[in-house]
Nucleic acid binder design. Sequence first.
DNA 1: GCTTTAAAAAGTAAATT
DNA 2: AATTTACTTTATAAAGC
Lengths: 186, 203
Amino acid sequence: MPQTKPIVSVENVVASASVDQKMDLNEITRTFPDVEYHPDQFPGLVFRLKSPKTATLIFTSGKMVCTGSKSEEMARKAVKTVVQKLRKGGIKVKKDAVVEIQNIVASINLGGKIHLEQAARTLPRSMYEPEQFPGLIHRMLDPKTVILLFSSGKLVCTGAKKEPDVYRSVNNLHALLEEKDLMIYD
Amino acid sequence: RLRTWDSRSQVHEPVDRNFRQAFSELDRLKDKLAVGDAVIEKAAYIYRKALEKGLVRGRSISALIASALYAACRDTETPRTLKDIGQASNIKRKDIARCYRLLLRELNLKMPVVDPIKCISRIASKAGLSEKTKRKATKILQTAEENKISAGKDPMGLAAAALYVACVTNGENKTQRDVAEAAGVTEVTIRNRYKGLKVALNL
DNA sequence: GCTTTAAAAAGTAAATT
DNA sequence: AATTTACTTTATAAAGC
């Protein structure tokens, strides 16, 4: 019954990973001159890949955080590539990394405008402060995500750990907006 | 004033030391911002709720009262910007905004959306604009809101643009810079809002 | 709470040209 | 005044202050 089909695009995936062994970040810095490592500023070493275009933070514990992927699969591939490069560079990594998706950010176009100030009054758990930010911030309980709504009809969904949760969030909200008559289609 | 809370302060020790500090700060802000007693009482009420929910732990008392006062202003539709509260309290605008959003989330507060029409008076008095211009700006914003160009825009920017347009049509000699300065926005923002106003009002 | 990383939305701001 | 760069908001992990 929604009047339009939302166009969803995953923009960023954050994944945590672990190779379950201590890592010598100074050794990595020596063999990979392009990495950024400033221990007094931040304990993680930044390892950037051109493809997939990602940034992976590596900690002495062997735990990692990979950001910038456009999909869950790309994030897993990026972590594998990082471990592969470390091994090629002579860094001993015994096990393969165990990857967990932590957050998915998606942009959405609903295909119609949203009546924001009315939505601010009728949507529960929402905040609309145009002096601070042009979007309305809505906290969805199930799936537990946060959606930013803009008057243009575009959205940003974040907090999801699975791609299906992004779609469920968007569909829930879209139905809610139509139900409460907050959509404006031309 | 604030005697009610002071008397409690002598009964419950650690909590009330916090109250005293909070309310003396609130009293100081009251004079600096020239807000009424009703706003101060609301701010005190919000702060007390925050304290009961344990939101003060590890947080700056000053930042929290300032935020509670901003929330009270919003709730009573008293036009005070985050910038105003920031200057009066010497706390960064960003920190007040963050605490304010925390109060909204944790205390489940619902605030009315800021009405740009209520921003007109403050800007007009700072810039020294006439009553006639204020009335015209109000009319402009009323028509503008019906054409929903305000969504997502800073209410101060909208009010400033409406006042600037009103000045031009009334022949009041004020530059964009004068109005922008009084409103705390840039001339570029006034120009951008003016474009939308022109379309919505056929100017 | 902060520090760092990534990305989108739309508004505002500041620095260049 | 047009461009460019940059910051506002949201979530999320990592180790340590």
